[in-house]
Structure formats: C-alpha cells, structure tokens
Design a protein around this nucleic acid. Structure first.
Length: 206
DNA sequence: GTAGGGATACACT
DNA sequence: GTGTATCCCTACT
C-alpha cells in the first residue's frame, strides 16, 4: 500500500465494513453509532481513512435545517433514497460536504460527517491539504472531504463497495458529547450534533 | 472579524 | 431565460 505502510490494512477494514442495514435506521441513532468508526476512501493504489469524531443528523420534512425540508429536488435526491448511500454537495463556492443517507427510501434523512481523526494515508492527505498541520487535516466537513479527495463524483455512491465505505472494527468511544448543530440558520436548536468528547480533532468545541 | 467562491432554488420577466 | 438570496465553510487578517 502507499504511504510507506508496512501492512495493507484494506482486508481488515473491508472485513468490518458496515452493511446497508446499519444505515436504514433513525438518523440520530446512526449518527451516534458512527462515532469511533472509520471512514475509508479506497483508491487505486492505497487508502485514506480516519476515525469519525464529529457528526450531525438531518431529517427531511420536519427539519427546517435540512436540504430536504422543501421537498425532493435534483440536488437533494440522494437524501430520499434508501440508507447506505453517500450524499455529497457543494457549498459556499468552495467546499464539498459528505453525508451518509439514513432511513428508508422516500423518507429523507442523512448524517453529515463533520470531522475525522486521521488514521491512514497521511502523506496523501497532507498533499491534498496543502501543508497544514496534521491537526487540521480533517477537522471540518470541507477539510475532510478535501483530504480524502471526495467530490461530486461520489454523490449517490453506495457505501457497500470498495471506493467509499465505513468500517467499525472497534467498540464505540465511551464519552460522547451532544449539542446543537453548527452553521445552520434554522432548526439548529435541536441537539443533533454528536462528537467524541475529548478528541482534539473535532471542528470546534461545543 | 470577514472576503471569497459557485451552485441551487425560486421568484420573477 | 434572468435576477438574486441563500448556503450544513475555510483561509486569511
């Protein structure tokens, strides 16, 4: 594998890949259960990956902060699909956001991945992030997408393949902090943000 | 603190 | 078809 690793971790990560059923549940439950799992971007000649340390749940018709609040559109269409797909969108003219779609077909909900603790593929992430300190490689939703090379081409992709998936080989982190969501104009008062309490890799302290 | 950047959705011709 | 307000942010000062 690339990045000078002596071991190829790919078979191990794949062996613990979360199945589609994991995602076909309530978004807040999925969000909480994703903390401590590993987001894996499989590339032709290696992987980039990180432990998930910060997430936010978004619902559809009942959640004014959600893209799906106003009904199904071409942009938010992946949110309406069955759980276990990626929803990637572009904001502020600069950044891609990676969400995992949750729940069942026709009932929109998703979990935004907001921060990772880098785990594999460091040199590749450093190159993509242009020389920032390792602490800042993936501590924000736009930053983690950049570090892992995630873009529009991943929108709608199934999370059950080898290109993009989440692996959960270890038991969950014990200490979870819960708070309001970040950057949302309306609906932010709901406590739908979850993060690993003591991680230095969260995007900001709540 | 704030400038920047581009896609999207929806209101209007 | 065109105008424009908004957007789940980041990198700078």
């Amino acid at each position: 594998m690339g990045d000078g690793s002596l071991l190829d971790l790919t078979p191990f990560l794949r062996a613990h890949r979360l199945p589609a059923e994991f995602y076909r549940r309530d978004a807040a439950e999925v969000a909480r259960d994703l903390l401590g799992a590993i987001l894996v971007r499989g590339e032709r000649d290696g992987v980039t990956a990180g432990f998930i340390v910060e997430v936010e749940a978004y619902y559809g018709g009942t959640d004014p902060a959600s893209h799906a609040f106003g009904g199904r559109t071409p942009r938010n269409d992946p949110m309406f699909r069955d759980g276990g797909h990626a929803y990637v969108y572009f904001v502020y003219g600069n950044h891609f956001m990676l969400n995992v779609v949750t729940g069942r077909e026709g009932a929109p909900s998703a979990v935004l991945l907001r921060a990772l603790e880098p785990a594999a593929g460091f040199s590749r992430m450093r190159r993509r992030r242009g020389g920032v300190t390792d602490r800042r490689l993936t501590n924000g939703p736009g930053r983690l997408a950049r570090a892992l090379g995630i873009d529009r081409s991943h929108n709608g992709m199934a999370l059950t393949g080898d290109a993009l998936y989440i692996s959960a080989p270890y038991s969950r982190r014990a200490a979870i902090a819960r708070s309001g969501r970040i950057g949302v104009a309306r609906g932010g008062e709901r406590a739908l943000r979850f993060c690993a309490q003591d991680s230095p890799f969260v995007s900001r302290s709540a």
